[in-house]
Design a protein around this nucleic acid. Structure first.
Lengths: 254, 254
DNA sequence: TGTACATCAGTGAACGCGCGTTCACTGATGTAC
DNA sequence: TGTACATCAGTGAACGCGCGTTCACTGATGTAC
């Protein structure tokens, strides 16, 4: 009956596999909750096991080590924020918004995710967790936000919404070949086809990325505590100002 | 002999007091080294005691708790970076540089300190140390960098180097009264006398501050790893772009 | 100058806590004939 | 359908480590008379 295995039933696999899958899901959920509560640096396998009502050694049937669990959560975090930014980009630019408006929407999505998942943000963009180094296979997930920023710049160029860098800067040789290749593969046919300087585009993306991390980190880590009466609005103004800096013009409608 | 106590000798105080002072200095130095090596989150009183060759309980004669020690180091960090920025500001603006040039110099000083004191930067501007809350008396030290940025904006306004916020933004009611008062006391007579909108000036300072933290955090926390061939130059371009965003024009010389 | 007392520095043991990881083990679930 | 064996899940105890903080204590350094 080889055909039977082709179309998987609602819950696929042998009973054992299903049990394993659900327990793994529970384990990840518990780990997520733990990170949300105490932060990634304080994530402990024993704590997770405790929450699941299971011996601490049992966790090792499902996960190689604490660091492996951290990696799973890190990938999840990058995917969440990546999806949030991609969605915001698609919806806003799809609705015919200017590059500046799209940028603000993406930035707001980034911030909203960070505020909702404070400790995931810390794990992804904060101080590295002591003793933990993210393995190489996390980068493809981390890159998704970069992809959005890159396409944002490209779209702005295509729409004529891109002012020259001001002050003018020589960016030749600033960007790594690997990243140049990555940027070249973005958008419809890439930035080159749009007559854009790829290197300069990457630099603009870096400024945008720095702005995201800067604005969210200062707010989340308490450096704006007592400074503003309306963090939301201040974020918007801040983000818009940076847009001007990178040359993302927000043309008046019409 | 009350007059004798008025002019303190080179090493002041009773022998006991002097011993206490030097031991305290040694303790702080060891704690500094420890933070530089393993990071603030991993700072331990036992580790410090070990480095000093002393019983762990002995440290409690000099410091109330681990948190109190962290506070001392945090204040030190803020003072270091504050001094660095203040010096850069004074030297550059004193040499007749434009607002844009002064801003770049201050930003470079900020970054240089961060690179040299990685873990102090993390303590001051990174993810909060789990379980530690900075007491209120650290804020006056944290504020020094803010003071530099504020005076920078004021100086730019006085020199006519300040373009209107672009895109124009309504910033009324955005800033807390306390911070408005702080900003009003900056510079020679304050921003009001220079015909500046104090609230708008604070917002500009926030953008600059976010840019500092953003650029340094992304670099230090590894998010630009493999992106650039010259982090120094990229930082300069990034920072200059933000200057344009907040309206700090760098007029061509002459 | 000398004695009696108070102050302070530093010791070492202990309390109580938490952690990651390993390992021999008991049972249950699957598989092959 | 039934038996013999292999696989896997989960247990509980243990190893070895580190931490912050307390506490009764020994000595040395200071102070008052």
């Amino acid at each position: 009956v080889p055909g039977a295995t082709v179309s998987p039933p609602p819950a696929a696999g042998t009973p054992r596999e299903r049990a394993r899958a659900t327990f793994t899901a529970d384990l990840l959920a518990a780990a997520r909750r733990q990170v949300a509560e105490v932060g990634a640096a304080q994530l402990s396998l024993r704590g997770v096991a405790r929450e699941l009502g299971v011996a601490s050694s049992a966790v090792y049937r499902y996960v190689d080590s604490r660091d492996a669990l951290l990696t799973l959560l890190l990938i999840e975090a990058f995917d969440e924020v990546g999806t949030a930014c991609e969605t915001a980009f698609a919806q806003t630019s799809g609705a015919g918004a200017s590059a500046g408006e799209t940028w603000v929407a993406v930035a707001r999505a980034f911030r909203a995710w960070a505020l909702e998942h404070r400790h995931s943000y810390e794990l992804a963009y904060g101080t590295p967790v002591p003793g933990y180094v993210a393995p190489a296979d996390t980068t493809s997930h981390a890159t998704r936000v970069w992809g959005v920023l890159g396409r944002l710049v490209i779209a702005a160029g295509l729409d004529g919404d891109l002012a020259p860098l001001s002050p003018p800067a020589d960016v030749r040789g600033l960007v790594t070949p690997g990243v140049l290749a990555f940027a070249g593969g973005l958008g419809d046919g890439g930035p080159g086809e749009a007559g854009l300087d790829v290197e300069e585009g990457v630099v603009r993306s870096v400024v945008l990325f720095d702005a995201l991390v800067g604005a969210v980190s200062t707010e989340l880590f308490g450096h704006l505590h007592g400074v503003t009466t309306d963090a939301d609005r201040l974020f918007g103004v801040t983000i818009a100002a940076v847009a001007t800096g990178v040359g993302l013009t927000s043309r008046p409608p019409g």
